[in-house]
């Protein structure tokens, strides 16, 4: 028996909008720790890891570990029927091949049940070790989204370079090239507007902008984004999900042939 009640149902709606472009089908795993997902995109260069900790739910009942295969486009269709202020509850019985999404309006005057068929999905779980990153950049998520969008009108790839001067996003294409430098800036009115650069050593890596733009679909979840870089490792782009967890996107760098 599984029953997860999330008062801030809009978080789940935003999570789905953040990942459905990247991943078509995925297994949602429920355990005592929380509600999680790890899935790769079809070309196996990007991976999304979601964790919503059990403490973040108003009610969290998970009698035994359960893996539920879902088509994310279908989940998104279901969740779009929930109001932004609705409380969302996920329910599944042991051995059932369906999951039920229950939507309650804040004043309890409307209650809806949407039952969705589950599917069997073979998924490869990657063992991602904890890594020491050469540079960690924390910046406003809207600013990062703007940079990725702007650069993708010029080129297909972005070089992200971190030095003592700041973090530089560069691209080049047929019509020309572009460089955007963001300097560390902690003298702002609100902490979420700060750009903070923790650098152990300079790092410069190249990534496909198409994936970066896809990651920025998570922007509505958090005012800030954290970008962790190490040479010869995938970049980690992390958005916090309120105080209950995170979405992390991993993207393999482009390598010179």
């Amino acid at each position: 028996m599984l029953e997860l009640r999330l008062v801030q149902g809009s978080l789940l709606k935003k999570v789905l909008e953040a990942i459905k472009e990247l991943v078509t089908d995925a297994n949602f795993d429920c355990s005592a720790t929380g509600f999680s997902l790890q899935a790769m995109d079809s070309s196996h260069v990007a991976l999304v890891a979601l964790l919503l900790r059990s403490e973040g739910f108003e009610h969290y009942r998970c009698d035994r570990n359960l893996s539920m295969g879902m088509n994310l486009n279908n989940v998104s269709k279901m969740l779009r029927c929930a109001g932004n202020d609705d409380i969302i509850t996920l329910k599944a019985d042991d051995g059932s091949d369906t999951v039920t999404f229950m939507f309650e309006s804040p004043n309890q005057d409307k209650i809806a049940d949407f039952e969705m068929k589950l599917m069997d999905i073979d998924s490869e779980h990657l063992g991602i070790p904890e890594a020491e990153y050469h540079a960690i950049v924390k910046m406003p998520s809207a600013e990062f989204a703007r940079i990725c969008k702007d650069l993708s009108s010029i080129g297909d790839t972005v070089v992200i370079s971190v030095t003592k001067e700041g973090v530089k996003f560069s691209t080049r294409g047929d019509i020309g090239n572009a460089n955007i430098v963001c300097r560390q800036n902690t003298t702002v009115d609100k902490p979420e507007e700060a750009t903070i650069i923790e650098m152990q050593e300079p790092v410069s890596l190249t990534f496909a902008l198409r994936y970066m733009n896809s990651f920025t679909k998570a922007t509505p979840l958090s005012n800030t984004v954290t970008i962790s870089l190490s040479s010869e490792l995938p970049v980690v782009v992390e958005y916090k999900v309120a105080d209950m967890g995170y979405i992390r996107f991993y993207l393999a760098p482009k390598i010179e042939d």
């Binding site: 196996h44 990657l126 790839t157 995938p234 991993y250 393999a252 482009k254 390598i255 010179e256």
Partner: peptide, 14 residues
């Protein structure tokens, strides 16, 4: 030119 590495190159599947 450059090519896109796969995540398998970096992380082993469990």
């Amino acid at each position: 030119g450059s090519s896109q590495a796969q995540l398998y190159t970096f992380y082993q599947a469990l």
